[in-house]
Simulated scan of single mutants.
Amino acid sequence: MKVILLDEQVKEIQTLISELIEQEIKFHLTNLNLSSPYLNKKQTCEYLNISNNTLDSWINKGLPAIRIGKTIRFDKNEIHKWISRLEK
């Protein structure tokens, strides 16, 4: 079975899908607090889609981390700089 849509129907569907994706991204950023420039370990793992073990390994390899007592935070800009240096 083949479905044929008018151009305006295709555009409307594209707009609806785009709006839904944008809402989901905003929802997840708000709930994970990933909009902050500084992330904790759990947020960093989710932000980079890596495991805690991988994050620990990257820290040992030089991933910049901010330590305040027992608390550790990661600056998103520094994460991107560190990763981009690895890609070269």
Rank of each mutant, 00 (worst) to 15 (best):
V3W: 07
V3A: 11
I4V: 14
I4S: 08
L6F: 13
D7Y: 10
Q9G: 05
V10I: 15
K11G: 10
E12P: 01
I13A: 14
L16I: 14
I17K: 11
E22Y: 09
E22F: 08
E22S: 15
E22T: 14
Q23N: 06
E24A: 11
K26P: 00
K26E: 07
H28Y: 14
H28A: 08
H28Q: 13
L29M: 10
T30V: 04
N31F: 12
N31E: 15
L34R: 03
S35G: 15
S36R: 12
K41C: 06
T44F: 00
E46Q: 10
E46S: 11
Y47P: 15
L48M: 15
N49Q: 14
N49T: 15
I50C: 06
D56N: 15
I59N: 00
N60I: 01
K61T: 02
L63I: 02
P64A: 04
I66A: 02
R67E: 13
I68C: 05
I68R: 10
I68Y: 08
G69E: 01
T71F: 08
I72M: 09
I72R: 10
R73W: 02
K76H: 03
H80K: 07
W82D: 00
I83Q: 06
S84C: 00
L86I: 05
E87M: 06
E87H: 05
